[in-house]
Amino acid sequence: MTNTDTRSVDEREQTEVISAEPAAADQPAPASAAPSAIPFSITALVTAIAGIVLGQWLLSGAAVVFGFLGHRSESARGMSTWGIVLGFAGLFGWILVAIMGVVGAAFAAPFLLLLDGANGGFAGLDQLPAWMEALDPR
């Protein structure tokens, strides 16, 4: 094997170092130089899941806020999007449960009036509770 390069080893190393320096200047700044939004995305996802599991609407609201803060980063956009979606699901889910509770109580209220407290059970249509007998026109 013959070496066709007649330069010395030191000359070759200097040429490689000189030619490598301009390429490094063309590189963009590392991603760590910009403030990272990844912790916001992780916090959004964790608080959204915890808000749904624990039934805490305040955690779901915090997940929505952290999700929008973490949505700035391209690398963690998926986590922040899921944090936003699950946060809104937790918020609106508990609002829906509260509305269903109010509607259910309004629907059940007339039937609760037929309960006879003295006998401890349902009075039925043929027997009225004592407080309703005074209202009976018969």
Rank of each mutant, 00 (worst) to 15 (best):
A130C: 09
D5N: 15
G51Y: 01
E11M: 05
L112C: 09
R77A: 09
P110A: 09
G55A: 06
V64D: 00
P28G: 12
A98Y: 02
A106S: 12
F68K: 10
V65Y: 10
A20G: 02
V103Y: 07
T4A: 07
N119Y: 12
I42T: 12
L115G: 04
H71F: 13
I95Q: 00
A44R: 00
L58Y: 03
A123P: 09
F68N: 10
F92M: 00
T4R: 03
G61D: 06
V103C: 04
I52K: 08
A63I: 07
A31Y: 14
S41W: 09
A33F: 15
A130E: 12
G117W: 12
L59Q: 10
V17L: 03
A134F: 10
S80C: 06
L113K: 15
L59E: 01
T47W: 03
A134M: 11
G93P: 12
G124K: 12
A20L: 07
P22S: 02
L115H: 13
I49P: 03
A123R: 05
I49K: 10
M132D: 08
A89I: 15
S73F: 13
R7M: 06
P22R: 08
E133I: 11
P110Q: 13
A48Y: 01
F68Y: 09
G104M: 03
L112Y: 13
T47D: 01
Q56I: 08
M1G: 14
T2Y: 09
A76E: 06
A50D: 00
D26K: 15
A108T: 08
A25N: 02
G117T: 13
A123N: 04
G87E: 07
M132W: 14
L86G: 07
T43A: 14
L69I: 09
L91D: 06
T15W: 02
G67D: 08
L115K: 11
L128V: 14
A37L: 07
G51M: 02
W131T: 00
S75D: 12
M100G: 10
G70I: 06
E133H: 01
A98Q: 05
G93I: 05
D26L: 13
A37N: 10
M100K: 10
E13S: 05
S19Y: 12
M79T: 04
S73I: 03
A105V: 13
L96A: 14
P30R: 13
F88P: 03
V103A: 06
L115S: 07
A29G: 11
G87C: 03
L114E: 02
A34Y: 15
A34Q: 14
A105S: 13
V53L: 10
L135S: 10
F68C: 05
F66V: 01
A37C: 11
Q14I: 08
D116L: 04
G90T: 11
P35F: 13
A37Y: 13
T43Y: 05
E133D: 01
R72M: 06
A123F: 05
V46W: 09
I42E: 01
A50R: 05
G101N: 04
D10N: 07
A62E: 10
S60W: 11
A23P: 01
